[in-house]
């Protein structure tokens, strides 16, 4: 289980996240929803050590150790937002890079085949430059690269960003399959409806604070939207 205690983080003198206490249950999909600028991506960047933080991040009760690049070795893997792929490298090179941590290098071809079973289209595109892919395919490469690291905990940042609705559904089908296989997933998402459809737990972040934490089953979408858009007066 991944857990934050009084986590605060920001950029330079500006604090974006304030005393965030979250629990990400093992084997569950936890969705972090919230409007633009709420601090969702900042949360992921703090979790992965890309920006400094105060407070604690615990993995199975012990503080998460090391720098950003040490986390992948411990199974905490991030799929960055904006379909960040290495454009001048082939699809397969992008994917192989995901298996960079020492423990993933064993059977590279078996690892690739397992990943291709999730993304058959990437197999067709394996020797193509990643920069020439469509948005949906690039998102799949970013996720496939994450899978290659054989994550225990997969942090996915805004997978629906800028994708056509059909493609979004395709991406979320894959997220469902990953979840069914037992991967712990932390999903950052603005699209509350689709996030709710896959999530076990939902946390709403607004202006750097957690304003709602509930099991997805008990979340009422209207009430969530009232909180999301800060329409407290009119809610319920």
């Amino acid at each position: 289980m991944l857990e934050t205690r009084n986590l605060s983080a920001g950029y330079g003198a500006i604090t974006v996240l304030w005393d965030v206490n979250l629990k990400f249950r093992s084997g569950a999909l936890t969705a972090i929803v919230g409007p633009n600028g709420a601090g969702k991506t900042t949360l992921l960047r703090a979790l992965t050590g890309l920006i400094p933080h105060t407070g604690a991040i615990l993995l199975d009760g012990a503080p998460l150790k090391g720098k950003t690049w040490d986390l992948a070795a411990q199974g905490v893997v991030m799929v960055p937002e904006g379909r960040l792929v290495f454009r001048d490298m082939t699809v397969e090179e992008n994917l192989c890079l995901g298996a960079y941590p020492e423990r993933c290098r064993g059977d590279l071809s078996a690892n690739l085949e397992r990943m291709y079973s999730f993304f058959p289209r990437l197999k067709e595109r394996r020797s193509q430059l990643a920069g020439s892919l469509s948005g949906g395919e690039a998102q799949m490469v970013a996720m496939g690269r994450g899978l290659m690291a054989q994550p225990r905990i997969l942090l996915i940042d805004e997978p629906s960003l800028g994708l056509a609705p059909v493609i979004v559904n395709e991406v979320f089908d894959i997220i469902r399959r990953l979840k069914a296989e037992g991967t712990t997933i932390v999903l950052i998402e603005q699209n509350t409806r689709i996030a709710l459809s896959v999530a076990d737990d939902v946390h709403l972040i607004r202006t750097g604070k957690v304003v709602m934490s509930e099991p997805a089953a008990s979340v009422d979408l209207d009430r969530l939207h009232d909180l999301y858009f800060a329409r407290e007066g009119q809610g319920a």
């Binding site: 690049w69 991030m78 290495f86 690291a149």
Partner: peptide, 11 residues
């Protein structure tokens, strides 16, 4: 291409 994205995969 991107140092941050490379660090995230464990480099």
């Amino acid at each position: 291409e991107s140092e941050d994205a490379t660090r995230v995969v464990g480099v």
